[in-house]
Write a protein that binds this DNA or RNA. Structure first.
Lengths: 220, 220
DNA sequence: CGGCCAGGTTAACGCTGTTAATATAACACT
DNA sequence: AGTGTTATATTAACAGCGTTAACCTGGCCG
């Protein structure tokens, strides 16, 4: 029985149990299913016991979200690690993994990106940490390999991020399996992503028109 | 027999007052600021009086969201009505209006697209109604005018929708004024949208490569 | 031993959505 | 006029929520 030397270094059993219970409740029924009393009941303690480890519910949620974000980036990293650096496959796999994780962890993802990020500190520590860097590096590699054209990497990252994130949030608020096509085609999310990839690569400009022509004179 | 829960043909004074109070509270402090007692207090009645007009809070929120969606589509329609049909300006103005409305009505927009859409009926009546058709018609016009290349309109609509929606949701969860550029550039949302428009038109493929070459053989 | 303190308890406050029972006023019908 | 019905509002209450306060309890340290 070695007495625990430093408390904060390795978390106690109780606190991890609390985190697990909170994570499960969150994944099962969303934010409103995560109640202090509910978490406490799962752990087998009183509700107020949680306040020994977390200042309030928001802090608990923040912790869970933070861990979820780490799992998210880990998932993304694992999805592209075996693919050749700078390849289009790698870039595409990253987007697909983004979508897959979001759809398979709906409530989780929802809460991760519903963290209103009131304090500017929140946004610093959460989404930018590993996720953005991973995204950016993949884009930079693809640029150097000639897979995509050269441009401001941050701009391109944000552009691609916007796309996958938009697709995901639309699918999350509409329907699980992408019935957003209203002509009865009902493409699945991966199918949609594949179709979109072509637009991303080649753009929407009409076929025979060179870049100079459509510049900004499209109006009559 | 059954007390009429649905608002009558001409809404009474009280019900519109309730809707207004609910809308204001929602716009001010988000969903959690919208409480039955709070709404009732603003109207000047008892909390339970609301239940004469709305089955429960969810129904009230749904009503407010529905009205907000109508305002949203009206806003979009007004933003493009004066611009030439089929022009790139029109398409761009639509996207810009989408972003502008979302950023100027943050809580509103958030709740509109946070309507988990549990019942399939919800999604039918809400987002598809006028908004999608407006979006689609604008795209079809642009296609016929040769502003953008020809493709499945629904696919292109969803593509562009994904684009603006993703940008908006990212900006909403990150920061008001788009500090998502982490190199200190801090482009504003309209600036970002303008920059992205070029990507949307011309794509990300490297400059000199024709469509056939990069098809799907980008791997090593 | 005394003291401290982390970790747990119960009780309680004020808030929430919601239900039940009740009151009141206006209208229709005989 | 009386009577019933309906719409509209009320108050009281319940269960659940996050959170605070006061209290207990066991183990560690000087």
């Amino acid at each position: 029985m070695t007495p625990k030397i430093v408390a904060p270094a390795q978390p106690s059993d109780t606190v991890t149990a609390i985190e697990e219970a909170a994570r499960d409740l969150l994944a099962e029924g969303g934010l409103e299913a995560l109640s202090m009393r509910g978490v406490a009941a799962r752990v087998g303690v009183s509700a107020t016991a949680i306040y020994n480890y977390f200042e309030n519910k928001q802090a608990l949620v923040k912790r869970v979200v933070s861990q979820g974000f780490e799992r998210f980036t880990g998932y993304l990293r694992g999805a592209i690690v075996d693919l050749p650096v700078g390849s289009a496959e790698r870039l595409k796999a990253l987007g697909e993994a983004y979508i897959r994780f979001a759809l398979e962890n709906r409530e989780y993802f929802r809460v991760i990106f519903a963290s209103h990020a009131e304090t500017p500190q929140d946004i610093e520590e959460l989404p930018e940490g590993g996720g953005y860097e991973l995204f950016r590096q993949t884009v930079v590699d693809a640029m150097e390999a000639g897979t995509i054209r050269e441009a401001d990497p941050d701009l391109v990252v944000l552009y691609l991020w916007t796309h996958v994130h938009g697709l995901v949030t639309l699918l999350l608020t509409c329907e699980p399996d992408a019935r957003c096509e209203h002509t009865g085609k009902r493409l699945s999310a991966p199918e949609l992503f594949t179709r979109f990839s072509e637009f991303v690569l080649y753009g929407l400009r009409p076929e025979g028109v060179s870049r100079a022509e459509t510049g900004s004179v499209a109006a009559s």
